[in-house]
Amino acid sequence: MSAAGPAWSVGEKIEGRRLPPITRLQLIKYAGASGDYNPIHLVDEDAKRAGLPGVIAHGMLTAAMLASPFSPYLEHGYIREMRVRFSKPVYVGDELHIGGRVSGAEVLQTGNLYTFEVRAERGEETVASGTVGFLVYRAENDRG
């Protein structure tokens, strides 16, 4: 049904995404949807008891943001591997920028595996970084 899948070249930048500020409601929604009710994401007093200035975003919410630039290509492939290092806490009000570049391309039996270096930044500061391995299926008639 669809056109050929995406192809990237090593070194190429992916289209970055500037996200709206993290809100408390977003963290509450993510807690409900994920089942992660760790109070350091929801209750300021508990965050302070854990040595933080206030509630912080769930690491896996930031991981979901790092995966989001690949969502539009899901018809042609999928994230086979993702590695994320959470280097700085993300607070309510933080405006994150998600960006990345292609660091590798490999031909496999199942398709083309592209490796991306991805990062989430708050201003000049990196809050999370890692790699995403996105597998583009070999051919459109080689279904599923």
């Binding site: 760790n38 690491g59 591997e81 993702m82 590695r83 994320v84 959470f86 806490p89």
Partner: peptide, 17 residues
């Protein structure tokens, strides 16, 4: 496990979607 752990790193590897 939900009491105050900080998340340092995450990896996931899929064999299929």
């Amino acid at each position: 496990p939900d009491i105050g752990l900080l998340h340092g790193e995450h990896r996931i590897r899929y064999e299929r979607p």
